[in-house]
């Protein structure tokens, strides 16, 4: 891929970046007294265009989803190479696959759980599976479907559906990234895998599962070797902090682990993780030729929506502003 092909897309992305919510707007949203007030503030922003979709029950999820869909459509238009946008759509594809497979195994109707922003036509895949004819399905997806279904026949364990698809999603993601050949993307993906692995290590310890299970759920292809996590399985949290002190992601990981140690909760860990990744992707601000700004914009949009969701859910549950402020992720701009 020629990096210079992205020149036009990058400039358009820069203009769009200006429309991302600013720190000030987020602050105003946090301080809004009621849900209605917050919605009024949101209506003045770029999100206003989706307000017409709002039904009378004031469900902000409709707006968030419409906005997500719109961002993807804009980026489809902006990006000369569809693989960049598809990279971020992949998450929703695999989500849809999970829903689809659970639907088929349980013979239930989960159609309300589909997120129609993936790249695949999930209805078509469903008919393919039901007709037991997977020839026309994308090879990695076909492999995923076959693996999940055969595994379920043997183990009858619904958790494994999630585990297998999560793993295959990450590998699929990495495969696309490796084809794009952008060092920033690779660094992003590896840092994400490392963070997820550390989180998994602690979660598995908390869930009191055994080492075998850990080996099963750990992702390979990160910067940190899988063995290192397995070795750390019996270590205390202090020891784990020491073990990973010299890793590449330590700058974000160590504060995350420290906060986990203090509170015994993951709240801050996940925040630190998101912050580290968004800081990493901020590098794209200095890139003028290449796919990175487009990728970064979509990630920024997703982070923004995460923040909005935190604010709006908190408003609905009457959580005080200072609690909300503590949870806010750093934004891209």
């Amino acid at each position: 891929m020629d990096r210079l092909d992205f020149t036009q897309g990058v400039v358009r992305t820069r203009v769009l970046e200006k429309k991302l919510l600013t720190f000030g707007t987020l602050e105003r949203l946090i301080d809004a007294g009621t849900m209605d007030e917050a919605m009024k503030i949101l209506k003045e922003t770029d999100y206003g265009s989706s307000f017409s979709l709002l039904t009378e029950n004031n469900d902000f999820e409709t707006i968030l989803f419409a906005e997500l869909k719109r961002s993807f459509q804009i980026m489809d238009d902006v990006s000369p190479d569809s693989s960049i946008v598809n990279l971020l759509r992949l998450k929703y594809d695999y989500h849809n696959l999970k829903v689809l497979l659970k639907e088929i195994i349980l013979d239930k109707d989960f159609s309300h759980l589909y997120l129609p922003i993936g790249t695949m036509d999930i209805k078509q895949i469903k008919t393919f599976i039901l007709n037991e004819n997977l020839q026309d399905v994308d090879p990695p997806v076909r492999a995923a479907i076959v693996e999940v279904l055969t595994d379920y026949k043997i183990t009858r364990d619904p958790q494994r559906i999630g585990i297998i698809l999560d793993r295959l999603y990450i590998y699929h993601f990495l495969k696309i990234i490796e084809a794009i050949k952008s060092p920033l993307f690779i660094e992003y993906a590896k840092a994400m895998i490392d963070f997820i692995n550390v989180r998994t290590l602690i979660r598995v310890k908390r869930q009191k599962k055994d080492r075998k299970f850990l080996e099963e759920v750990l992702l390979s292809k990160g910067n940190i070797e899988k063995e290192k996590f397995l070795h750390s399985f019996t270590d205390s949290i202090d020891q784990i902090i020491r073990n990973f002190r010299n890793e590449k992601i330590a700058k974000g990981l160590i504060p995350a682990l420290q906060s986990y140690k203090e509170t015994n909760r993951f709240e801050d860990f996940e925040k630190e993780m998101d912050n580290y990744l968004i800081k990493l992707i901020r590098e794209a601000k200095h890139i003028h030729f290449g796919p990175e700004p487009i990728f970064a914009y979509l990630l920024a949009k997703e982070t923004e929506m995460k923040n909005l969701r935190i604010i709006l859910v908190s408003k609905a549950n009457e959580i005080p502003p200072q609690m909300v402020r503590k949870r806010m992720r750093e934004s891209y701009v």
Binding site: R167, Y169, R203, E267
Partner: peptide, 8 residues
């Protein structure tokens, strides 16, 4: 699975 879900 552990990779896509928040630990909360």
């Amino acid at each position: 699975g552990c990779a896509q879900t928040p630990s909360e």
